[in-house]
């Protein structure tokens, strides 16, 4: 990193600490407390259906829902027409999203996909238990929807299989499909991202979880080349892993649409400044 960036870096670090304070320490009540106000905004853990072959809501699911909650006001302003979850698992996340945006009524419709047939049934049961609806489809990522939904989806949420595993552990349809991410945990993520870009509308947002091992900065670089700005909505360190919830949106000043501008120092700093973990990344590397 150039020495002249130190002011920018500390500003970025300031944002990061502000961010973790907002979202973790003083912010949201913990889940599972059915008497807390929080459950009015999310799925209730005791109503989430389960199956031995389906990933249960865990720290990553909670982090994603907390990040969505922290963005709730923006989501309500966006008034997304179509929202979609890729890899819906137990249904905890898509159900929570439908609950937190309930006031938008039938103006917002929800789709959810999973490659695991037990997961789609579990998601269906979780949605029903909460009295909300999403059309659930058993499919590989978004297969079958890519043409007709092109550019129509306003919000995509993904908790991808991000755990680094040998490639052969990427199983097609059992519970391993919820976590086995292949080399660097990136092999499924790198298939999901192009599919998401096809579906997102011009005003669309992607919320995705990534692990430190997945190289979130590299993910943001790749998305930036395709015209997407990004920012870390939430960072959470658990005993086992450091999780990021990343948010992506189309930005005319980035990517191939602005290839000349993207090479100029000014525009580079403008998008990198939206990556609070940039400095963190360099420290860790």
């Amino acid at each position: 990193m150039a020495g002249g960036d130190s002011a920018a870096v500390s500003a970025v670090e300031g944002r990061l600490s502000e961010l973790s304070t907002n979202s973790d320490e003083k912010g949201l009540p913990r889940r599972g407390k059915s008497l807390s106000g929080r459950t009015l905004n999310t799925a209730q853990i005791q109503l989430v259906a389960s199956h031995p072959e389906v990933y249960e809501p865990c720290d990553d699911s909670f982090a994603l829902v907390d990040a969505l909650l922290s963005d709730k006001a923006q989501l309500l302003t966006l008034k997304p027409r179509l929202c979609m979850e890729i890899g819906c698992g137990s249904g905890y996340v898509i159900t929570s999203l439908a609950i937190m945006l309930r006031q938008l009524g039938s103006g917002t419709q929800y789709l959810a996909t999973d490659i695991n047939q037990h997961a789609v049934e579990t998601t269906q049961a979780t949605l029903e238990a909460h009295g909300v609806h999403a059309d659930v489809i058993a499919t590989d990522i978004v297969s079958g929807l890519e043409k007709r939904l092109h550019g129509l989806v306003d919000v995509v949420v993904v908790n991808p299989p991000y755990v680094p595993t040998p490639e052969e552990e990427i199983e097609s349809n059992g519970i391993a499909s919820s976590w086995a991410g292949g080399i660097n945990g990136r092999q499924v993520i790198d298939r999901i991202l192009p599919a998401v870009r096809e579906l997102l509308s011009e005003r669309g947002w992607l919320y995705m979880i990534a692990l430190e091992d997945n190289d979130p900065l590299d993910i943001c670089h790749l998305m930036n080349e395709k015209g997407y700005a990004s920012r870390v909505l939430l960072k959470r360190c658990t005993e086992e892993e450091s999780l990021y919830v990343l948010k992506f949106w189309q930005d005319a000043s980035t990517g191939t649409n602005a290839s000349h501008a993207a090479r100029s120092p000014r525009s580079e700093s403008s998008w990198l400044s939206q990556l609070p973990f940039r400095s963190l990344w360099h420290k860790n590397a």
Partner: peptide
């Protein structure tokens, strides 16, 4: 089945 279309294909 149970409201869910199964679009999965074998390899």
């Amino acid at each position: 089945s149970r409201g869910v279309p199964n679009m999965l294909l074998h390899e």
